[in-house]
């Protein structure tokens, strides 16, 4: 059996076993659909409502991707500024920490009051949740270049731009990617939380609104169907960034080597 097949087979079997167990439990214990729907019912509901749920899924994905892109840009730019100016970092890092620890659940309704466009408000909420790991990891990364390499660059009279491009950025890459893996999942959580707490306009409703709607109308199978799509999205994001990390760092960084710990 090839290595790849082996790697995928075990988790898949476990997953299938769990789902089968769930189905059995619901049937044997006669649990009503409005309390805990069986996986088969969830699958049916998903298929029946796929068109409209897919539309909402796309809205959530757009917000997530947008927030992540902004978190990357913001996190990297701010980290770069911090790396260039320790004074700036000392002044502003506490602000970043405050943003990080403020519960988005409490802040989202306020943001929705102050920001005109609902989409902008949701992006802002998801951004607040997602940008900190990228910022903090990239700050560390930009300082992580080997001291001897830094001496070498000094010796050859490298310009600050050359140093940034050829030394600091590549050295920071593993740290940035680690932050990215965390922020990928967080931006989804942020997008969903913001929409759940603050709601969305009737037109562009993401999966969170659909879950709420189903909840209010006691359509529990639909809730689970939407939830399934959310979970799949999270898994997809995780897999995507794992692959990205492998591609970027695989050839050279120890974090991607196959050697046992």
């Amino acid at each position: 059996m090839t290595g790849a097949l082996q790697r995928w087979l075990l988790p898949t079997l476990v997953l299938l076993a769990l789902i089968a167990g769930w189905e059995l439990l619901v049937r044997l214990a006669n649990i009503p659909a409005y309390t805990l729907p069986a996986p088969s019912l969830i699958g049916q509901t998903l298929a029946a409502n796929f068109g409209s749920l897919a539309g909402s899924w796309w809205v959530t994905v757009k917000i997530t991707a947008g927030a992540l892109a902004l978190a990357c840009a913001g996190g990297v730019l701010i980290a770069g500024a911090f790396a260039l100016s320790p004074t700036l970092e000392r002044a502003l890092f506490p602000v970043a920490v405050v943003l990080q620890v403020t519960p988005i659940v409490a802040v989202a309704p306020l943001i929705l009051i102050y920001v005109e466009s609902t989409t902008a408000a949701l992006l802002l909420c998801a951004w607040i949740v997602a940008f900190f790991p990228i910022l903090s990891n990239t700050v560390v990364g930009l300082r992580a270049a080997d001291a001897n390499l830094r001496d070498l660059f000094r010796l050859y009279r490298a310009s600050p731009w050359q140093r940034l491009r050829l030394l600091s950025l590549p050295a920071a890459l593993p740290y940035f990617v680690a932050g990215l893996k965390i922020s990928g999942g967080l931006s989804l959580i942020g997008a969903v939380t913001a929409e759940m707490v603050a709601g969305a306009a009737g037109r562009e409703t993401g999966l969170a609104s659909r879950i709420l709607e189903a909840s209010f109308r006691t359509e529990t199978p639909k809730m689970f169907a939407a939830l399934t799509l959310l979970v799949l999205t999270g898994v997809l994001i995780f897999a995507l960034f794992n692959a990205l990390s492998g591609w970027l760092l695989g050839p050279w960084h120890s974090s991607e080597s196959d050697r046992p710990l």
């Binding site: 309704p109 929705l112 009051i113 709601g199 969305a200 306009a201 037109r203």
Partner: peptide, 14 residues
């Protein structure tokens, strides 16, 4: 119309 709808969070402010 849905275009006018914005979430009401039980805050009279807006």
């Amino acid at each position: 119309k849905d275009e006018a709808l914005k979430p009401y969070n039980y805050n009279l402010g807006p």
